[in-house]
């Protein structure tokens, strides 16, 4: 190190072209090395900041299928807080009998309510309507062709499961907010409130029926 040349031009025996090439090549290599090393560190830092497992989903138990008859529904709240309508629409004995629709309007996030008399979901905010399959039929969602998001369901051993996002903060299980027309397990009092649910759910996270209870 002590015998370093202060001016490379002095000590170099190579021609000017070769020197220039060497300088360019080594500078490029250095830049690549620095970019690679610190760049990778930067990527790791970015990945650290980006939420870990942002969309982790899990199968959660909802209810025994025996509690549903065709037309019955319940309101389910997933572990991360989303509210979901689970309705039995058929009697074939599999998961295809059921449909799980988010009760959150895809337009601006209000809570939709089932109107049995009109056979539709109704959103009170901007008069949006959806049919029983969750397709937008009127109002802004109908115009834009929006749908109520659907959640995958499966039936295993007479038990109904739903696939929902799992938040690290939340409890690891979902809960049934409102059994409505679904019969509870034997022994529990039957709480029939009729289909359709409370648009005020979004206001304070509590159902009218819960408060009554």
């Amino acid at each position: 190190m002590a015998t370093d040349e202060r001016d490379p031009a002095d000590s170099s025996e190579d021609g000017p072209d070769r020197r220039k090439f060497l300088a360019t090549a080594s500078t490029t290599a250095m830049a690549a090395g620095l970019t690679g090393g610190y760049g990778a560190f930067g990527l790791i830092a970015g990945r650290f900041l980006y939420p870990a497992r942002p969309d982790e989903r899990q199968w959660q138990f909802v209810a025994e299928t025996g509690r549903f008859e065709t037309g019955d529904s319940l309101l389910y709240r997933g572990p991360s807080g989303e509210t979901i309508n689970v309705v039995r629409q058929g009697n074939a004995g599999g998961a295809e009998d059921f449909i799980a629709l988010s009760s959150t309007c895809p337009h601006l996030g209000c809570q939709v309510a089932w109107e049995a008399q009109n056979d539709r979901y109704f959103c009170p905010c901007h008069n949006g309507t959806f049919d029983a399959r969750g397709l937008g039929t009127g109002g802004p969602p109908g115009d834009a062709g929006m749908e109520l998001p659907r959640y995958p369901l499966k039936v295993d051993g007479g038990l109904l499961f739903i696939e929902v996002p799992v938040d690290q903060l939340a409890d690891k299980t979902g809960e049934i907010l409102d059994t409505r027309s679904v019969r509870p397990p034997a022994g529990e009092p039957l709480g029939i409130h009729g289909p359709g649910h409370d648009p005020c759910l979004a206001c304070d996270g509590q159902s009218r029926f819960d408060r009554k209870a």
Binding site: M1, D4, E5, P8, L22, A23, S26, T27, A29, M30, A32, G33, L34, T35, G36, G37, Y38, G39, A40, F41, I44
Partner: peptide, 22 residues
């Protein structure tokens, strides 16, 4: 040590750093 040598060393070390992050 020439500047070139230093640059090459930096390149190699940068690569090693990258490797360690891999």
């Amino acid at each position: 040590m020439t500047l070139e040598t230093k640059r090459i060393i930096i390149a190699v070390l940068g690569g090693l750093f990258l490797l360690s992050l891999v």
